[in-house]
């Protein structure tokens, strides 16, 4: 059992089963809607987790990349009648390029500089989306045409559940492979001690930049899918608070754990729906939960629970 859970393919299989069987428990479109949001948030978090958990850097601007992807899809399809998939690809390439340009000089430095730079970048993106009204519709947002596959219009929550779920599974598979590859080993060395890694001849900057670009592209893809799934997008998606939300999901679920990122995204997407019954006390409860988890499970949920499970099973901690 332990071997099964630890095995890469085993975990992916479990996740696939969950995604495949979940619809049996979803009674109506509202639940599908929450599920889609969860899956797309998880897609961002799987990418962001590579950066936070493995490259040891924080981004406080990933919502900016998410929104750029979304608006690339929205604007190119709505205003220029592009094919939705082409728009999505252009968004991903553009965001990747932007991430590369920003990260290259900054990631040579250590510490929280990337956090600060991404914070600034995210806010600038948010301001531009708010101000360029003729193009983006400004703060009120804009409608997004349906994604078309040939003559087939992809609309409806059920279809989007499968698209989001499928994309997430592919993304998780990619992330797991990346972690197990040479890049991943280099990153783990880097997380341990950057100087030691450098002494061993690893070009740490190159790997950090690569991971940053990959995580930005994941966010852009999620943004594009979100725009088509919801058929509407507003600049709130680029907001600072959204960026914080993504980081929180990763940390809550467990850093350096791909499945943790998925769990974190699920909890923070579903929790606010559960807390609405508290009305005015919603924010107090949310803040308290966040603090509590971080104090009592500082490694995040999945790694902590995994440790407990191992402990109970009599295994020795790694």
């Amino acid at each position: 059992m332990r071997r099964f859970l630890d095995a890469r393919t085993g975990g992916l299989l479990v996740l696939t089963l969950i995604v495949a069987l979940l619809p049996l428990l979803l009674p109506n479109k509202f639940y599908y809607d929450v599920a889609i949001k969860t899956l797309l948030n998880a897609l961002v978090c799987v990418g962001l987790n590579l950066l936070i958990g493995y490259a040891g850097q924080i981004s406080l601007g990933h919502a900016g990349f998410f929104a750029l992807g979304g608006y690339a899809s929205a604007i190119l399809t709505a205003k220029y009648q592009w094919n939705g998939f082409a728009a999505m690809a252009v968004g991903m390439v553009g965001v990747g390029l932007l991430a590369f340009i920003v990260a290259r000089p900054i990631l040579k430095l250590r510490g929280h500089y990337l956090a600060m730079a991404t914070l600034g970048l995210g806010i600038i993106i948010s301001i531009v989306l708010n101000r360029e009204i003729p193009l983006t519709g400004g703060p009120d947002g804009m409608s997004v045409p349906a994604l078309r596959l040939g003559e087939w219009r992809l609309t409806g929550t059920t279809i989007w559940y499968w698209i989001s779920g499928g994309t997430l599974l592919v993304a998780v598979w990619l992330a797991l492979n990346l972690i197990d590859s040479g890049v991943g080993r280099a990153l783990r060395a880097l997380h341990g001690s950057e100087v030691a890694a450098e002494t061993a001849g690893i070009d740490t900057t190159r790997y950090k930049v690569l991971i940053f670009v990959v995580s930005a592209v994941f966010a852009s893809l999620a943004g594009s899918l979100f725009a088509h799934a919801e058929r509407f997008i507003t600049p709130t998606e680029a907001g600072f608070l959204r960026s914080i939300e993504f980081v929180t999901m990763v940390v809550l679920g467990g850093m350096a754990s791909t499945y943790g990122a998925v769990v974190g995204a699920t909890i923070l997407t579903v929790l606010p729906q559960l807390l609405t019954k508290l009305h005015d006390y919603e924010h107090i409860a949310f803040g308290a939960v966040l603090i509590g988890v971080m104090i009592f499970m500082p490694k995040g949920l999945v790694p902590t629970l995994k440790d407990r499970f191992r402990h109970l099973a009599g295994g020795r901690p790694r």
Partner: peptide
């Protein structure tokens, strides 16, 4: 005042 939340809540109002 967030459109994303509004969409979710309106689905909830209608479906749930």
């Amino acid at each position: 005042g967030d459109a994303r939340q509004a969409v979710t809540f309106v689905r909830r109002l209608i479906e749930e």
